[in-house]
């Protein structure tokens, strides 16, 4: 009976992980710059972008961010139980849904990590017989949290510098609209490359889905073959996420970008993908949307454009609050499940 219920929970977890992979694709707006420039037909752009995000997810599933979320963040000798993983997922999903209804842009990465920390601390206190100090790999967690502050900051700096260099050496020398249009035509092809590159790293850094599967691998619920099989399924669902649901967001944003300059899109996309690549290679799950927002701020700063500090301040508060709130919510949920004897 107990085995049956564990199997059911594992199946639920796999379905939720696949659902998360789908939502990663569905919420990805990286393609909008590409679609806005009209360089590719809409459906072809969706397929290429989806394949890149799915490919990135699969290619980096053997470790990196998935391993960090699924195993490295845990204290020594601790593995996830299926209920812990279920609580983490349910809690972060609830928090993201609340955020969506309230119109607050939240990071799924921060939400998931917050939930992991909340669950692990309550687990250590309530039933693990583990000192909370040893429940988590605090060095790893410290590095992750540091990367959340550094990645947007570096995104801003890299975009700023990249724009200044390209503007000084090339863009400022373009005199007429014909020349500008001609050069932007070339930039469009570079933009295509940079968007595909960015999508690969968005997929590779999306540790939410694969982190859960890695947790199941780590606690022996899945074997390596099964893990890779489901990682491939996640990759395919990320592609489907873009193709089925992401298209609306992408089309909507792209329609506002028809006269956006491809060179600017190239600079922001390249900067954010560099950051995502470095973070992924270090196994650090970061928020892509935070990085891209700061890349755009870097671009505006370089062009001496006004920055909406009021909105930015609001966003920053939500960003900072997501982690502790998700943690507290997950902690309470796990504690509640524990009280009624489910875990």
């Amino acid at each position: 009976m107990a085995e049956n219920s564990t199997l059911i929970i594992i199946i639920i977890l796999i379905i939720l992980a696949i659902g998360l992979a789908f939502s990663i694709g569905a919420n990805d707006e990286t393609l909008s710059t590409l679609v806005g420039t009209g360089i590719l037909k809409f459906k072809i752009a969706l397929i290429i972008g989806g394949a890149a995000i799915g490919g990135g997810m699969i290619a980096f599933s053997s470790g990196f961010v998935a391993k960090t979320v699924g195993s490295d963040i845990l204290g020594e000798g601790i593995t996830y139980t299926t209920f812990m993983l279920l609580t983490v997922l349910i809690s972060s999903i609830i928090w993201l849904i609340i955020g969506s209804f309230a119109g607050i842009p939240l990071s799924s990465t921060h939400s998931l990590l917050g939930s992991v920390v909340g669950v692990l601390i309550v687990y250590a206190i309530s039933q693990g017989g583990v000192n909370p100090e040893n429940a988590l790999n605090w060095d790893k967690l410290g590095n992750i949290i540091l990367s959340w502050f550094l990645s947007p900051l570096f995104g801003l700096i890299i975009t700023y510098l990249l724009f200044k260099i390209i503007a000084k050496t090339y863009l400022s020398k373009l005199k007429g609209l014909n020349q500008i249009e001609k050069s932007e035509k070339y930039f469009k092809w570079f933009l295509l490359g940079s968007v595909i590159f960015a999508e690969i790293w968005v997929g590779a850094n999306s540790g939410e889905a694969l982190g859960i599967l890695y947790g199941l691998l780590n606690n022996g619920s899945l074997n390596l073959g099964q893990y890779f099989f489901f990682a491939i399924i996640c990759g395919i669902f990320a592609l489907l996420g873009i193709f089925i649901a992401g298209r609306y967001v992408i089309r909507n944003l792209a329609s506002q970008m028809t006269d956006a300059r491809p060179s600017e899109g190239l600079i922001t996309q390249s900067s954010s993908s560099i950051i995502l690549m470095i973070a992924t290679l270090f196994g650090l799950p970061i928020s892509h949307s935070h990085v891209i927002v700061f890349c755009i701020i870097g671009m505006n700063k370089a062009q001496k454009k006004e920055i909406d500090l009021k909105n930015l301040g609001k966003m920053a508060i939500y960003w900072v609050l997501t982690f502790p709130i998700a943690g507290i919510m997950a902690g309470f949920l796990y504690f509640g499940l524990n009280l009624i004897g489910l875990v």
Binding site: G38, E184, K185, D259, R261
Partner: peptide, 10 residues
């Protein structure tokens, strides 16, 4: 014309 980012202004 598809590949023209300044189309609206033109």
């Amino acid at each position: 014309s598809k590949l023209m980012f300044s189309k609206a202004d033109r």
